[in-house]
Amino acid sequence: MSALLKLSELAVNQSGTVREMPKAGVAFIRLREMGLMAGTPVRLVRVAPLGDPIEIKVRGYSLTLRKSEAAEILVEPAAAN
């Protein structure tokens, strides 16, 4: 298993798999309910022009979240292609 990265640290177009998410907090429960949970593959699509928020692809759709939340989600980056 390669080192875990924060979701906010993924490079644009880099994919990975979510490994850890905070348990509590409205934001993280909602993110889970929207399909982002441990084991879910994600890809960082882009960063907003001003540097925050970020757009990710998860389960085939595009989702935005702020870096402050993304920094609490740990992902295992996919092998570089």
């Binding site: 909602r30 595009s62 989702l63 935005t64 979240l65 702020r66 939340e69």
Partner: peptide, 12 residues
Amino acid sequence: GAPPLMIMELPP
């Protein structure tokens, strides 16, 4: 209030 979130779908 809590800082607002920006958890939002970007619909096609």
